[in-house]
């Protein structure tokens, strides 16, 4: 993801320490780590276990439970395409298949050049403007194959 940096144990420890005054700081820490590094590295589990007085297994259990936390860095750009029923009623599944054929991709995969990751999202709350997606966090709606293709190209700087 844009702005992501490589894992740094000292910086990670700082992030953990910044959140320790909160009640139940686990999720805020995981979000902050992913925000900083673009993913939650395996090294995070022992760090959190130590700080929160939990077992590594418990921490791993939490990290792996939530769809949001990536175990490895994503591509430079991330497209989150909605698969909710409202978007399906306006052809989002066909839109995804079309994009996958064009780019040789599937859900949760990254293009070979590391430029684009496509992830499913189950509803963005843009259901009256379907189909909808987020590209690098920016909302786009009322999509068709052309406008989606343009948005993807624009994000990739093509």
């Amino acid at each position: 993801m844009l702005g992501a940096s490589t894992w740094n144990a000292d910086r990670a420890q700082e992030i953990v320490d910044e959140h320790l005054s909160l009640e139940a700081p686990m999720l805020p820490i995981l979000h902050a780590l992913q925000e900083e590094f673009g993913y939650v590295a395996p090294e995070a589990a022992p760090l959190l276990a130590q700080a929160l007085n939990l077992s590594r297994a418990e921490v791993h259990g939490v990290i792996s439970f939530y769809h949001d936390f990536r175990h490895e860095p994503a591509g430079r750009h991330v497209l989150k395409l909605c698969r909710g029923e409202a978007c399906q009623s306006m052809g989002s599944e066909e839109l995804a298949e079309d994009l996958f054929t064009k780019l040789g991709l599937d859900w949760n995969r990254t293009t070979r050049d590391g430029e684009l990751t496509v992830e499913p999202v189950y509803c963005l709350g843009l259901c009256a403007s379907s189909p909808a997606a987020l590209i690098d966090g920016e909302p786009i709606a009322r999509l068709d194959a052309t406008t989606l293709g343009e948005a993807v190209d624009e994000a990739r700087g093509l």
Binding site: G84, E85, A86, Y122
Partner: peptide, 11 residues
């Protein structure tokens, strides 16, 4: 608000 087709809370 996870239900597809809903956005009242967000709005």
């Amino acid at each position: 608000e996870g239900d597809s087709g809903t956005f009242a809370d967000r709005m």
